[in-house]
Design a protein around this nucleic acid. Structure first.
Lengths: 206, 206
DNA sequence: AAACTATACGAACGGTCGTATTATTAGTTT
DNA sequence: AAACTAATAATACGACCGTTCGTATAGTTT
């Protein structure tokens, strides 16, 4: 009932902290209970008892990753006033979140989105929900900038394009294990794309 | 020595035809030898003998997928003269290749790229090579259009952006199982992006 | 102190994985 | 027809999978 950390909660947290890291590299399928238990130095059955099924562990992992994502990308950007500044902040924080390897395998949701895109079931649905949530958030941010007269663009269209750059940069960075060429390309793409729709008299941040 | 189809080759082809389909949905890790044999109605050991190891099966699957990709996207686009027309053709054929579900799980290489991006080994390397190959091809196509005076853009930058739209559309289509909203967004993004760098007097195809 | 609950444990289950060994079939060559 | 080769099958192995079960311990409540 109260918010104290009982013994079981600490274990659960430790498990999920490790789970999101593993899943960002090897996927939610590569996440095995035995491996997780070994790495954490606890018993397989004890770990299992916290979740009851592998699917429930996967869903809990998605929820944990969502919290981290919100903390690292959404919350910081929402400290900026609605408008072009927030759109810009979302871009900067997203690329930074990927580049800083908040998850060792890059963006957790990009990884698992591709893993479960062509499947059905509760895990797919949970991922899909987060995806809608994020794209809706991006569209809203763009729309506010349009409403403030800073941008002239179709919110859905611009949100799609910006998100495209984020994901392409993330994949390039992980796949080539490079220093950040992909991020530079994405930054340039974002900048020129925003410049092309910015209204007269409005200047880009930074 | 000769090119006749001996019995073993037919089996090998049948296996790989199924492998690429499975891998596009469940990944190269989800590709299991037992499942493959059951679905094809042959013995697990007989199938295994064709490849000698799972990794070799995975590598052969990548090569098979590359051939299909070349046939479906690259070759048709290369029937168009170098220049803006070919850049446009690459875009059209890529989106069509994804939309037609040449692989049931969408673009094979996008799937496995994300699956193996954060790993090491021969499979990762093979995927990386195909990725470089494709991005180089895109850059070359853009560069030719620039050299012909049809486009004014940094080839690497424009290739990155176009490819971003392709992949975002592919993911959206698979993830939401939608009718094609993602492809429409991608087409619009490609069109306006090309229009923004097309030189005076040049018009976009179609 | 006794009763109860939450948490963790070890052992085992049936199943599937990739792989190796051995046998059997089919096709070709002589 | 016999001999040889290439292709497929049968069987078995150890490792790991998710899951279940019975039990031991620690913490809390009465």
């Amino acid at each position: 009932m109260d918010g104290r950390l009982v013994r079981g909660d600490q274990t659960r947290r430790a498990v999920l902290r490790r789970s999101v890291d593993i899943a960002s590299v090897d996927g939610l399928e590569g996440l095995s209970i035995g491996r997780l238990a070994t790495e954490l130095g606890i018993s397989k059955s004890g770990l299992f008892a916290h979740f009851g099924s592998k699917e429930e562990l996967q869903l809990a992992t998605i929820r944990a990753a969502r919290r981290i994502y919100a903390d690292e990308v959404v919350t910081p950007a929402f400290e900026v006033e609605p408008g072009l500044g927030r759109v810009w902040a979302l871009s900067v924080h997203w690329l930074d979140y990927s580049h800083r390897r908040v998850f060792p395998g890059g963006c957790f949701f990009q990884k698992v989105s591709h893993e479960y895109a062509a499947r059905t079931g509760a895990v797919h649905d949970a991922i899909l929900t987060v995806h809608w949530e994020w794209m809706g958030l991006m569209e809203d941010a763009v729309r506010e900038a349009v409403d403030k007269g800073e941008l002239g663009a179709d919110p859905k269209q611009l949100a799609f394009e910006l998100n495209s750059y984020y994901e392409a940069a993330n994949l390039a960075s992980i796949l080539h294990d490079d220093g950040g060429t992909g991020y530079e390309l994405a930054r340039q793409a974002i900048r020129s794309r925003l410049e092309s729709t910015v209204t007269a008299g409005t200047t880009l941040p930074r």
